[in-house]
Design a protein around this nucleic acid. Structure first.
Length: 583
RNA sequence: GGGGCUGUAGCUCAGAAGGAUAGAGCAAGCGCCUCCUAAGCGCUAGGCCGCCGGUUCGACUCCGGCCAGUCCCGCCA
């Protein structure tokens, strides 16, 4: 990457000017804070002033005298208090861009040390419908997985579905009573009815002591492997799985299902090992590990319960077992959990227990990637008009339907005729892209206000705006009957106009952005980059005729347009978004 | 009571491993289609970066305290 080359150049200059011990300091090369300061800047002279007992500008001068970057940078300039401004030579940019012409990775390097990484995301519950709460985990998790995969990591995408535990005892016990066929015959009930029965079962569980006991017995039967219970359970899982798959197919998300039940045989070993470590204590009949740094209202240490007083295990036990399995059997070097921010406490707690139990080798990193809630336009938790949780299926269908309505209106006003197939496809791609992009383009830590009108808007930082920029490039190739792959190896990119230079420089930043997203796991940075790319392309498109330009500018501009489109396509792919040729 | 996250323009949000006058979009106002889709581009206006202190040559960014919102806090996940 260009920035690495600059860093190396500055580090060498630091050694040459001030000796090897100074060579260790960070050369502080960053993208310029403002275009009028050039392309990059180094702030190292300011921070060295005290240590070297010299004025920043004097340090900067000595540095510049020792920097050897003239083969691709214009003469370095000192500005302000001692900033060193760096501007790249257009000829160098032209060469770099030409090199991208044949590079399918568009300059994005592979990770130097590829790792085995687990991304745990989506995680819906069996016998319930996916709702808006699963939206962010699914979309953000998928994008993170795509980016890690593209960087060359060996990624295991795990769907830790809720397919075990108390709620199943409850549901099965209730079905035995009111609708036993559901436990013996596949698809006896549709999922909507199942969800309704689940709610009734829950209500019954909460108020009926006798039923509670029956439900508990059912959990014990299930965990012990009783065939009739297992059979019913499998039917429920099978049905839910198919429903989930409809959504995953629609969203183009790949996942390996490995639910909570998978870890059932490993739970007792967690308890045994914790006992051996001397971490386990019994309190009011429950087995727990008392935590450091977590206290209750009275200031006493808070426990993490790993075995309930009735002998059953809970999610903390499962999460610990899963963590061990992923490290020992999957060989994970990094485990990323994409769940809502409300679970931050839980993760901090079970991470602590895993650490204290010695289950976390030095080279393994575990990280919770939290995200905020999805809110309605009133700023409150999103609900349907009748106050129900919004089903994901309905939410996506609505986005597609609204896109279709917008599209049809536009076709009418523009007098365009399009086939049903075209309309259906554009509506689907734009609608789904809009939902994904609206989510991803926001810093995931904050709550996010869900608005169809905003996400489907044709202007601003939205999916339709980016898709339109891509479509514009394809429009050029259609109109001019250009095959971008046949522009010829000898063709040169020439950067003359300001908008061409600005666009070119932006294209060359992709690698830096991807590296940043990989480090911080913040896909909104990539969205920001792609939005700016689209803006810069539109400015170029406005200022510079392409097809009508004289050679060699015509070919150069065609190449620049194609590079923009390929960068957009790749970037959007990493967000899980498809492009369109026309819209 | 403890803890997490958030607080930046009227609205929705960027920016935070410290760096030069704080950025977009929407909404408002004004321009630009004989020319590759105007689903676009340009211009104008709009800010005690929640408050108070501290560290630093330099703080929206780091630290401490306070205020507000929100979520979580022993046998649900």
């Amino acid at each position: 990457m260009i920035i690495d080359e600059l860093r190396n150049g500055f580090s060498a200059a630091l050694v040459a000017a001030f000796g090897p011990e100074i060579g260790e300091v960070d050369p502080q090369v960053v993208p310029a804070s403002n275009p009028r300061f050039g392309d990059y800047q180094s702030n190292v002279a300011l921070s060295l002033a005290k240590q070297l007992q010299q004025k920043p500008r004097a340090i900067a001068e000595q540095l510049i005298a020792n920097v050897n970057l003239s083969y691709f940078c214009k003469p370095l300039e000192i500005a302000g208090a001692g900033f060193i401004n760096i501007t790249l030579k257009p000829a160098y940019l032209e060469t770099q861009l030409s090199a991208l012409q044949t590079d399918p990775r568009l300059g994005v390097e592979k990770a130097q040390h590829p790792q085995r990484e687990v991304v745990d995301f989506s995680s819906p519950n069996i016998a319930k419908e996916m709702h808006v709460g699963h939206l962010r985990s699914t979309i953000i998790g998928d994008s993170i997985a795509r980016i890690l995969e593209f960087r060359g990591h060996d990624v295991l995408r795990l769907n830790h579905v809720g397919d075990w535990g108390t709620q199943f005892g409850m549901l099965i016990a209730y079905l035995r009573e009111v609708y036993p066929t559901a436990l013996t015959t596949a698809d006896a009930l549709d999922l909507g009815d199942l969800v309704a029965l689940y709610k009734k079962a829950k209500a019954r569980f909460d108020e009926d002591e006798e039923f509670r006991e029956i439900a508990r017995q059912e959990v014990v039967k299930l965990q012990a492997g009783a065939e009739d219970s297992l059979h019913g359970w499998r039917l429920l899982c099978e049905q839910s799985r198919r429903e989930f798959q409809v959504i995953y197919d629609l969203l183009d998300v790949q996942l390996t299902e490995r639910g909570e039940s998978f870890y059932n045989p490993l739970l007792s070993a967690v308890i045994d090992d914790l006992t051996k470590q001397g971490l386990l204590e019994e309190n009011a009949g429950a087995k727990c590990v008392f935590l450091e740094g977590f206290t209750n209202k009275e200031g006493e240490p808070l426990p993490l319960i790993v075995q309930k007083s009735d002998g059953g295990y809970n999610y903390a036990t499962t999460d610990l077992a899963a963590l061990r399995y992923r490290i020992q059997e999957d060989g994970a070097q990094r485990i990323v959990y994409v769940t809502d921010a409300g679970q931050a406490n839980h993760f901090a707690q079970f991470f602590q227990v895993a650490k204290r139990a010695g289950w976390l080798p030095e080279n393994v990193e575990i990280v919770h990637v939290p995200f905020g809630l999805v809110l309605g336009e009133d700023g409150k938790k999103i609900k349907t008009r009748s106050g129900e949780t919004v089903r994901l299926k309905d939410l996506l269908a609505e986005a597609i339907a609204r896109t279709r309505a917008d599209l049809e209106t536009r076709l009418t006003t523009e007098g365009r005729e399009e086939t049903e197939e075209f309309i259906a496809n554009v509506s689907k791609v734009v609608g789904l892209s809009a939902v994904k992009y609206a989510d991803l383009s926001q810093n995931r830590l904050t709550n996010y206000i869900f608005s169809y009108d905003k996400m489907l808007a044709l202007q601003g930082n939205t999916a339709p705006y980016l898709l339109y920029a891509y479509v514009r490039v394809q429009g050029i190739s259609r109109k001019g009957k250009i095959d971008f792959t046949q522009l010829g190896n000898s063709a040169q990119i020439l950067l003359k106009e300001e908008t061409e230079l600005v666009l070119a420089k932006h294209i060359l930043h992709l690698g830096e952005i991807i590296a940043e997203v990989e480090r911080d796991l913040l896909p909104n940075r990539l969205c920001q980059y792609l939005y700016e790319l689209s803006q810069k392309f539109n400015q170029f498109y406005d200022q510079c005729p392409v097809l009508q330009a004289e050679e060699p500018w015509r070919t150069s501009r065609l190449m620049l347009s194609d590079l923009t489109a390929r960068t957009l396509k790749l970037g959007l792919f990493l967000l899980g978004i498809k492009v369109l040729e026309r819209m």
